[in-house]
Design a protein around this nucleic acid. Sequence first.
DNA 1: TATTATTACGTTAGGCGTAAAGATT
DNA 2: AATCTTTACGCCTAACGTAATAATA
Lengths: 276, 276
Amino acid sequence: MLDLLELEQLAAFADCGTLSKAAENLHISQPTITRTMQHLEEVFGVPLFLRSKNHIALNETGWKAVEYARELLKDAKEAVEGVRAFDRSLHTITVSSCAPAPLWYLLPDLNESFPDMTISSSIKNNASVLEDLQSGICTLAVLPEEQVPEDHCSVPFLKENLSICVPPDHELAGHAELSFAELNGYNFLLGTRLGFWDDMCRKKMPSSRFLIQTDQFTMQELIRESSLPCFVTNLTAEDKETFGGRIIIPITDREAKVMFHLVFKEENKKYAERFV
Amino acid sequence: MLDLLELEQLAAFADCGTLSKAAENLHISQPTITRTMQHLEEVFGVPLFLRSKNHIALNETGWKAVEYARELLKDAKEAVEGVRAFDRSLHTITVSSCAPAPLWYLLPDLNESFPDMTISSSIKNNASVLEDLQSGICTLAVLPEEQVPEDHCSVPFLKENLSICVPPDHELAGHAELSFAELNGYNFLLGTRLGFWDDMCRKKMPSSRFLIQTDQFTMQELIRESSLPCFVTNLTAEDKETFGGRIIIPITDREAKVMFHLVFKEENKKYAERFV
DNA sequence: TATTATTACGTTAGGCGTAAAGATT
DNA sequence: AATCTTTACGCCTAACGTAATAATA
């Protein structure tokens, strides 16, 4: 039977050209590698080397053996990595969500219900979430109702309504409600990456600019100190403080009201059951 | 690093269900296989088994590891076989010919010129010979001039003219020459498998039947004792005796005169050089 | 009681490195 | 002289099997 350690020495010899350099590389003695090459010839049952008194080189068959050796070594490495990755996946719940808000409710819940599992989550746009779902990269996906693929299980999860938030003296402050059409052209502060909402806003308000703030504190300061409108939803959990005296005005468009669904494969039902 | 011997034990355990049976199968002791399983868990770095006091079974990850193990074992086996096959191919000249006659001249020549090579030959139809050539299965191919592929080297080798051979009292015996059209409808004795000629005759004489004789002696007897026509060519080396008093009549069709070419890849030029 | 996995233990085979030899440039 | 491969030799590890242990059905 082949021995991967021996094949590694063979590959090293192919790389180095001489047994001595290969031995040095692998931190073993020359005699050891000499013996290994002899043993490899025994195992393969055919000559692999051209020998002269103080020189050894691979013959044509030897090079072919090296090809196979490298392939096997790569496969063996991938096997170990594959098994480890599989084991990790058994202890990880991976959530891909199209928006941040659902995660605020989902993640604490999962953490509590499956305390010995690692919870890994990411926010991306609808298409990417779908990919993760189809490819099995994610265990649970959060998608708008309309995006739920037919061949997957799903449960309704949360409803989110988008509103904007302006200072009382803002020119929009008088409206009881607003449409994307009316908002188009205004520039907005955008708190964190919004996933789903991000795409939606850019699409519905193509003339608007979105001033993205990654820092939480900066964002709060700008909300307080500027008159730029920003977004809130019914799920936004910020303090009253954060928005100071700002006024919240609902957006009337159908698209501003979203029903998020939890989507998953049959085999991952157990992780979604408690949300049914 | 993984050890294929250990993986073999893992696969055996997966097959047998218990360590004892696996040990028995592999003719090793139970403690050995126990230790191996423990060591495999170390190497993979993740749990592979569900253990109770006197029971051990593969967990989900373990089964995944078994998958990889089987794959690696198969690959390793194929590597050894592949290297052996490659080595053999280096010491074998494989000839695929569309007709037998060229081999009568080619094989003795090759045997003499390359005494330490094994010569392996087969007769097949044009299409199969071409396949062998393209796929590299054969070192040298013998094909009719018209069939030589453009992307290969070739040298003219032999010219063969097909004739028929009938007893003096046969109704065709009076002709000085004949065409396939005139022969169509007669039944023929067919000595050995003719490769190229076989297809040709069936195509040009669709109404004829061919009585195939695999036994040399039977063939000779039938030639002597029946009046059925048979085929000969300018290359046929049989004794005058074999054909008794039979008369040989050339076939006039263009297709009955064939120029065989030796066809080969650049890399195998050395085996054809002496025929240039 | 029979079967199974695991641990303990003693033995041994085989693999490694050092040293030396032989050969080539 | 320096470099390289191979052989010789002795040590020592590590792998194996036997025997014992523990647990279960």
